[in-house]
Design a protein around this nucleic acid. Structure first.
Lengths: 186, 186
DNA sequence: GAGATAAGATAGGCAAATCTATCCAATGGA
DNA sequence: TCCATTGGATAGATTTGCCTATCTTATCTC
């Protein structure tokens, strides 16, 4: 019989399968059987690791969270920096947000803050680096940068993703930057 | 035995119970049995009206939608009009939005547009009346009013509600209007 | 008041999904 | 090479929720 996965490799395959099921059918259609089948294994293998359905869902989400770090661009221009970051988020975080949203809908135990941090990126606010550089270049005045303004383009993109449950078209990203964000900061 | 509800009164009680179940546990945890129990009735009563679970969920949502019409304020000032509308939405639509979000998360068959239209209000865009009057008063220039700018304060509030799953504090509403929206239109 | 209508109780069939028990087989380390 | 470990197959017990059939009883209408 074919090769047999073990340990970390197997665990990764299981979590990947779970994640695919989650994005394919959403939380409501998520079943252990489907994960087992997609991973090409059998129920006990799953239950040896995660005691129940919800534990598996949580594990799958955190698994994807861990390896989806957004890197902050440095193009030399505030407009391009923000736009590039928006494009990256747009391309990589849609499934994550919708899956999280479905999960949070079922469980409100996870706080809304998790959802908020999700698109933002990681630590404090990685986008801060972008704004700091723009101020250093003299591109914008620091007193125009409230916390809300700084998060504005990302909030608007997150809103777009949450409402449409799909990536935003590129011209929407540009519109957000050129007609909303930049006029407010310079 | 106790009094027995009939017709419209009973139907309202059933839809209310369904709505409460939906907001309490989300779409994933929504069961017919729970609705039956909460309404203090029995399964056939439910099934005589709605053929299945999804029909009941849809009915409960439209039921709540119908009786939560937001009226558009007319205070004589753009700032107060927008702020008043935001406050009304904030106070009345939180459960609606989160429940809809939960529902749509389970089923992506319903389009994201439904969720988007939800907070806006009804017909075209009722907030348009506010902007028309502001232009008539000469308070703002019509060419500053793109569709995105017009929906901006409402998008930001919706974002706030979706992420925190709670009403926004009043100073957040004011911040949105005074530091984001108004600077863009005048 | 009598009959039609619909509410409500009870029970259960059915399907799907969760989780477990039991076994066999492959892999890796000693 | 041997053995402990763990992956994988299969089957099934159990639960849970959807929905229906049947009957009794309250309420409305005439």
């Amino acid at each position: 019989m074919p090769e047999r996965r073990r340990g970390a490799a197997l665990e990764k395959a299981l979590l990947d399968a779970a994640w695919e099921e989650l994005t394919a059918g959403g939380y409501a259609r998520f079943t252990m059987d489907a994960v087992v089948q997609r991973a090409g294994t059998s129920p006990p293998v799953l239950y040896r690791r995660w005691s129940d359905r919800d534990a598996l869902v949580r594990a799958a989400i955190t698994h994807v969270l861990e390896r989806s770090r957004v890197e902050v661009p440095d193009t030399g221009s505030l407009r391009e920096d923000v736009l590039t970051l928006l494009r990256t988020i747009n391309a990589t975080r849609v499934q994550l947000v919708t899956a999280m949203s479905a999960h949070l809908a079922g469980y409100h135990q996870a706080t809304g803050a998790d959802l908020g941090d999700l698109l933002a990126t990681g630590g404090e606010n990685p986008a801060d680096a972008i704004f700091d550089r723009a101020v250093d270049r003299g591109e914008i005045a620091p007193d125009r940068l409230s916390e809300r303004v700084k998060s504005l383009p990302f909030d608007l993109l997150r809103h777009e993703i949450l409402v449409t449950r799909a990536p935003a078209p590129d011209d929407v990203l540009e519109e957000i930057v050129d007609t909303i964000f930049l006029p407010l900061v310079r």
